[in-house]
C-alpha cells in the first residue's frame, strides 16, 4: 500500500541524505555516532532472516540488504572523518555522551519478555524492534544539549520521523484489508513515533515557518 511504500522510501531517503552529505562535505557535525551504531545493530538483528533464505520478495530482500549496507557505510564514513578531520571528530565524540548500555540492556530484557517464539531469530527480531524505537535518543540528546542543529541533522531526523509516522496509517490499512494486527511492531512503532513528536513540533515551527532550528 501507498503508506508503506512512502514510509520505506522516506526511510531510505533519510539514510541517503546522511550518506551523501557526509560523503560530499566530509562533515559529521551534529551526527551521533552512537545512534548510527545502534542502527547497525538494529538492522543486523532484524534482518537475520536473510540467512534463512525464506525471502518474502525481491523488494523486501533488496531493501534489507541496502539498509544493512548503508548503515555500515555510514559508520565507515564517520571513521574516515577521524583521520581527515580530527578536530570535528573529537568535537562530535565529546558531545555524544549518551550511555547506550541503558538502551541496549532494557531492550534485551524486553525482547526476552515480549516475543512470538523463544528462538534466536525471534528474540533478535523483537530486540531490534525495541532498540529501533529508542535508537534515536543519543541523537536527540545531543541535539537538546547543544540546542542547535545543522540542516543535515534536521532533515535526516525529519525523514526518519516521517517514515515512522507513515507506518501508522499502513498498519491501519493492513488491519482493515488483511486483518493484520501485529502488536509488537505497532506498539514499538507508536513508542518511536512518540519520541519523534516533540522534534516534529519544533521542526514545524522553526524550519517550515522559516526560523532557525533550536531545541529548548
Amino acid at each position: 500500500n501507498i503508506f508503506r511504500i512512502l514510509g520505506d522510501l522516506s526511510h531510505l531517503a533519510s539514510i541517503v541524505i546522511l550518506l551523501r552529505t557526509v560523503q560530499k562535505t566530509r562533515q559529521v557535525d551534529g551526527i551521533s555516532l552512537k545512534t548510527q551504531l545502534l542502527y547497525v545493530l538494529v538492522f543486523c538483528t532484524r534482518y537475520l532472516d536473510l540467512l534463512t533464505f525464506r525471502w518474502k520478495s525481491v523488494y523486501n530482500t533488496l531493501m534489507k540488504m541496502v539498509f544493512i549496507g548503508a548503515s555500515v557505510r555510514v559508520i565507515q564514513l564517520i571513521q574516515e572523518c577521524k583521520t581527515r578531520n580530527a578536530v570535528a571528530y573529537k568535537d562530535m565524540m565529546a558531545r555524544d555522551t549518551f550511555q547506550i548500555k541503558y538502551l541496549v540492556g532494557p531492550c534485551a530484557i524486553l525482547a526476552l519478555v515480549f516475543n512470538y517464539k523463544f528462538t534466536v531469530l525471534e528474540l533478535c527480531w523483537s530486540f531490534s524492534l525495541w532498540l529501533e524505537s529508542v535508537a534515536i535518543l543519543p541523537q536527540l540528546f545531543m541535539l537538546s544539549r547543544s540546542g542547535k542543529a545543522g540542516t543535515l541533522t534536521t532533515h535526516y531526523i525529519f525523514a526518519l520521523g516521517l517514515y515512522r509516522a507513515l507506518y501508522i496509517p499502513n498498519w491501519i490499512w493492513r488491519y482493515y484489508t488483511e486483518g493484520r494486527l501485529e502488536k509488537l511492531s505497532v506498539f514499538t512503532g507508536l513508542l518511536q513515533t512518540a519520541l519523534y513528536s516533540d522534534f516534529f513540533y519544533i521542526y514545524y515551527k522553526k524550519v517550515i515557518k522559516g526560523a532557525g532550528f533550536e531545541l529548548p
Binding site: K56, N60, W125, E182, L184
Partner: peptide, 10 residues
C-alpha cells in the same frame, strides 16, 4: 497469526 506476518515489513 501474528507470527505469519512477523517479518514481512522492513
Amino acid at each position: 497469526q501474528e507470527e505469519k506476518f512477523a517479518h514481512d515489513e522492513l
